[in-house]
């Protein structure tokens, strides 16, 4: 969990959700890459982030893409965020006694025909789900993220305010963590578009 470093946070807003991650890839204290993304689009309104061992992040990205594609083909519809959460959970629990060393975060909006509700969830490395109403954090800076988010987050933020809140939360938390940082990428998911921005932080 500490080997490659990295942190992710997701937050709920008013009719929108945001998910953000840092960009560092390290080998213990040595930084290898500063452009390593840990958050991936699953559908055009659901994003999945994975913090932990980088090789498992890459392996599971491929594995989830396969499983979500199989779901869409069989069901002939897009996957719902809560269904994805269960899929992620069962995929991780399949490896209960030899786990993938990642902690996932899911952020998305439910089907617009059912009112487009914001949804966030996180899980531990063996797939124990945590459905939160406000925000979820994972990664090497999770303790700091939890503290900052607790102070900055408030209910019913508009997309632009949510972007500011999540960005400040992440940037300030990773500044106190040696294993995370080197800039960040933020996705704000709204019913009609996804706003993706890359941020610079303390680049040291």
């Amino acid at each position: 969990m500490q080997y490659n470093g990295g942190s992710i946070v997701a937050m709920v807003g008013k009719n929108c959700v945001a998910i953000a991650s840092d960009l560092r890839l390290g080998n213990q204290a040595l930084t290898i890459a500063t452009d390593f993304e840990k958050v991936f689009p699953i559908t055009d309104r659901i994003y999945l982030g994975m913090a932990g061992l980088a090789t498992d992040v890459l392996t599971l990205r491929e594995r989830f893409r396969f499983r979500v594609n199989m779901y869409s083909i069989k069901e002939e519809r897009e996957i719902e965020p809560k269904t994805l959460a269960q899929l992620v959970s069962s995929t991780l629990y399949e490896r209960r006694f030899g786990p993938y060393f990642i902690e996932p975060i899911i952020a998305g909006l439910t089907d617009s025909s059912k009112g487009s509700q914001p949804f966030i969830a996180s899980a531990d490395l063996i797939g124990c789900l945590n459905f939160a109403k406000d925000f979820v954090v994972v990664g090497t800076a999770e303790d700091k993220l939890l503290g900052v988010a607790e102070g900055l987050w408030e209910p019913d933020l508009e997309p632009e305010d949510l972007f500011e809140t999540i960005s400040q939360t992440l940037l300030n938390a990773v500044d106190r963590d040696a294993f995370s940082g080197w800039g960040a990428v933020v996705h704000v998911i709204t019913p009609d578009k996804v706003i993706t921005r890359t941020l610079k932080g303390r680049m040291d």
Partner: peptide, 9 residues
């Protein structure tokens, strides 16, 4: 760059 764990960048 790739290590023995399969970390690719």
């Amino acid at each position: 760059w790739m290590d023995y764990l399969g970390t690719l960048t």
